[in-house]
């Protein structure tokens, strides 16, 4: 398998389908109506893996869209975090929902449980900014 070239291999699904895998490791070709009928597609397969999102981040970065690339890298960190945890973190980041300690706990949990360093950094920045504007709980 040759390495991914973000400059020339987008759309990845078309130009490098060999690099795209579902969370359980199937290729795009496996995701057919027939296989769905046959019950050989596990639940929750129709989502991007962290690896895929990192490739998309590379595509955005080489297209000189740094912030979109950063966002896609954060998305890669969130890809394996359960829906309900994501909704909890979102709520915690809303104005006056969390104390500085709450947010620090979220940041630690993101780092230790999910290796989500960029998300943790975003949460810590939020805590510092909220302190300046009286938006902590």
């Amino acid at each position: 398998m040759t390495e991914f070239d973000p400059q020339s291999e987008y759309p990845i699904g078309v130009r490098r389908p060999d690099l795209i895998r579902t969370p359980s490791g199937f290729g795009l070709g496996h995701l057919t109506l027939e296989n769905l009928r046959a019950g050989v597609i596990p639940e929750d397969e129709f989502r991007a893996t962290p690896e895929t999102l990192r490739m998309q981040a590379q595509v955005a970065r080489i297209a000189e869209r740094d912030q979109l690339a950063d966002n896609l890298e954060r998305a890669a960190e969130l890809a394996n975090i359960p829906d309900d945890v994501i909704l909890e973190v979102y709520t915690a980041l809303r104005p006056r929902r969390s104390s500085a300690e709450d947010l620090e706990n979220w940041a630690l949990r993101m780092e230790t449980s999910y290796h989500a360093a960029a998300i943790a950094s975003l949460v810590r920045q939020a805590a510092a900014a909220y302190a300046t504007q009286g938006l902590l709980a």
Binding site: A75, L78, I86, R94, P95
Partner: peptide, 17 residues
Amino acid sequence: DTPWSKAFLASAYASRG
């Protein structure tokens, strides 16, 4: 919302494709 909650949300949406 705040810029940070919005940024998080943008990443959350992207993480689900």
